[in-house]
Structures are given as C-alpha cells and as structure tokens.
Design a protein around this nucleic acid. Sequence first.
DNA 1: ATTAAGTTTATCGTATAGGATATAGGATAT
DNA 2: ATATCCTATATCCTATACGATAAACTTAAT
Lengths: 225, 225
Amino acid sequence: MAIDRAKGVALRAKGLADEVYDILFKKLLLLDIQPGSRITVDNLVKELGVSQTPIREALGRLEGEGLVVKAHFVGFSAASQISRQKFEELYELRMLLEPFAAKQAALNIKVEALSSLKRIAQEMSELGANKRRNHYSSFAQLDAAFHNEMLTAAGNELICETLAHLHTHFHIFRLVSRSDVTDEALNEHAAILAAFDLKDGDAAEFAMRDHIVRSRERLLQAFEE
Amino acid sequence: MAIDRAKGVALRAKGLADEVYDILFKKLLLLDIQPGSRITVDNLVKELGVSQTPIREALGRLEGEGLVVKAHFVGFSAASQISRQKFEELYELRMLLEPFAAKQAALNIKVEALSSLKRIAQEMSELGANKRRNHYSSFAQLDAAFHNEMLTAAGNELICETLAHLHTHFHIFRLVSRSDVTDEALNEHAAILAAFDLKDGDAAEFAMRDHIVRSRERLLQAFEE
DNA sequence: ATTAAGTTTATCGTATAGGATATAGGATAT
DNA sequence: ATATCCTATATCCTATACGATAAACTTAAT
C-alpha cells in the first residue's frame, strides 16, 4: 500500500497529497477505516512511506468534505456513522432536488448522455443477474454514476455538485446496509429512462419521486437491524 | 494585520491556521483580494508573520470551499467572479430549497427564534433608514443571518449547511453589485415574518418564492452594467 | 523580425525537526 | 476509598530547509 515514488512524473504531476487523498478516500468509503476510529498521522507516515505534510493536507481536505473530523491538538478521526436524523434530512433534500433535475434532464438530455445512462443501467442489471457477493460496492458506484450522469444532463452544475457531495456520505451508509433488494431499483431506473426516451418531463419527475421514496424505505430497514 | 503571537492561549487554542483562514476569508468576502488575482504564500508569510505551513493549510481549506483555486506547481488565486450561468443556477437552487424551508419554519419555529428573526429584520430596517454609504456590507451580513436563522428553524441541518455554503459565493456577488434597492427586500422579509406569526406554512412558502424572484431581478441589473 | 531553445528566477511541494498540548496513569492528600 | 494533582508520553502544530517545477526572460539561429 506504500506509495511508490518511482512512478515519478505521472504521480508527482498530481502531487503526493492528492495520491494520499485518493487512498484515504477509498478506505473511508469501503469502511476499511472504521467510522469514528482515530486516524494518526504517524501511522500513515509508516504505512504510506510519505512524510507528514502531504498526509495532513489530504486529511484537511477530507475534513472539509465531512469524511473526517478534527479536534485541535487531538487529531483526526473518521466521521461517525450517519444518524437516523441525518438520513431523513438527506432524503428530504434529495426529494427537493432530484425530481426537479429529472424533469429538466428529460427535456434537455442529449442522445449521447442518454445512451450513456442506458449503458450504466445495463451494467447494473448484469451485475444484479449474477449475484456474486460483495458486488454491492460496484453496484453502489454504478448507482452513483447513474444519478450523476442524470444530474449533469439536467444542466445545473450547482445542484450536481451539491448532491455529489452528499452522495459521499450516502455511499458510506449504503455499504453498511448491504441490502440486496436491488432489482426494484433497476425497475425504477428503467421507468426514469423510459420517461427520458419520451422526453416527458412530468413522467420523469414522478418516476424519480417514486424512486426516492422507495429507496428510502429499502434503506430504512438498516436502522432497524 | 500581522498575527500577534503574544495573544497566546486564546489564539493558539484555535491554531494559527484557523486564524489565517479567518483573515483570508474576510479579505476574500470583502473583495480586499481581487477575484482572480494570485495569492502567493511567501507574500502572506511576510504580511502575517507566520510560516508557510499554516498558510498553506488555510488556503487548502478555502480551496475546498471554492473561494480560491489552486493550480499544481503554480499556486493559489482568488476564485473568479461568479458568472451569469452560475448566478442562474444559484437562484434555481434557492428556489427549490428556501420556499420549502420557509414553510417548515413557519410550522415549527420556536418563539425565541422568531423574536430573533424580528430583531434582525429590525436592525436591517434601521440600517436602511440612515442611508450612509458602504453599509451595504453590514446589510448583506444581516441578510445572510436572517436566512440562516430561518433555515435553522426549518429543522433540516443539511439544507441549512448547503445554502450557507452557497451564500459564501453569493455574498461576493452581492458586494460587487452594491445595489441600493434594499427597501423592497425589507418588505419581503416582513411578509415572510407575518406568515411565521400566523404559522401559515403556505403563505410563508409563497412569500419566500416571491422574495427570491424579486431578489434575482434586483441583482440581475448588475450583469447589465 | 520572428521563432525556438536554453537559462534564470520565482514559487510551489515535501521532508524533517522541535516546541506545544491533551490524555492517561500514578502518586498523594483527605 | 476517592478525588485531586502531577508527571510522562504520544501526538499534534509550526517553522525551516531543500528539491522540483513552471513561467518569464534572454539569446541565437533562420
């Protein structure tokens, strides 16, 4: 896992801090680092073979995104698991933004973007077909890609960024829940895409609303386990 | 403007980086640093009497918030002025979130929060009464406080954070425009507060919608100068 | 005169060292 | 036995030094 300085230019072009950031980001998303657990700089120095400076920079950026928290003169730790309260807030916010975005996307989407969306949906259904375990991580990533592509098509970059930012936290939650009820989600995506095909804004908005409501209900089980 | 290390504990308790952050944040909001202009670390070292490390940390955090941009091996610069495109996106997003928040706030707001809102509105109208110049900055701050207090009352912390984050950029824009048509805004705020008094959610939602539409039109002039 | 290559300089990015602080564990007094 | 204070250690925060890079400038050739 140590960073290989020999990679040279290609690596240095981004900077060590960016490399460290990517590594930590991935670890946090995959829960390779337990939520709430301490993250000491010294350990990362030994583990990654990089000095404190780029590590601190990476941790600082992650703090800005809410993935880690920092206490003065105490240090960094992975952000704690999402609470029921935050979960509800998240869905309330999604409910306000994504149906609107779906409507806009249905009206404005270009053919390339639409085919790209269909390709993602196709991949997801293939993933759902051969149910090997631990494909859930890939599924979640594809799901994020699907929503992101749609939001991009909607044309409001600010909304896209806002939700992408939230998806980061959201992702953590989904990995924990590891729910297998993904077939439903596929159908709901299909309904959205069908509305896109017809360029029917209202249908897309409705389908997205339905998708979010159902998605919330599916994940809600995780809190009752 | 140099940081006084002698302040000792009170200052160190937050850390130099936080102090630097506050200074730069203020400078950026007040356009004391021109949008798009370079921000060199060495200059700040001389100016603030602090070493590079905390300065780089502060700049990194500001980058995360979008107030400064960073080019690898080139350096930091203040983010460029908000574009017409972004302006429209911003108002589209506000229109999706704030009317909803106003409705929630009208239904749930506590008496203390309501009186706090009224106090802010009062201050704003006093500020509008004696029209000395350059009160605009204070006005903008009070306006931000008003919206923030209302969003807090709405009860969705995520929405509150999201909009607060956007307000940062928005603030910059408002300072540039320096429009003097603030009396209208006062009346619109009053309409929102009236709905809060009656705990009339729909009226609050409508009043907020009206406020945002008009606010957009007022600021739009700035792009045509 | 214009372009291209080489050189210089300003600035960034990273490593390392030392001072500062919080937390935990033990000693002491009540 | 308990609470308080003190001490030790792990860790953080900041300063400084050096290597790496991009951009500007100069020079030479066409």
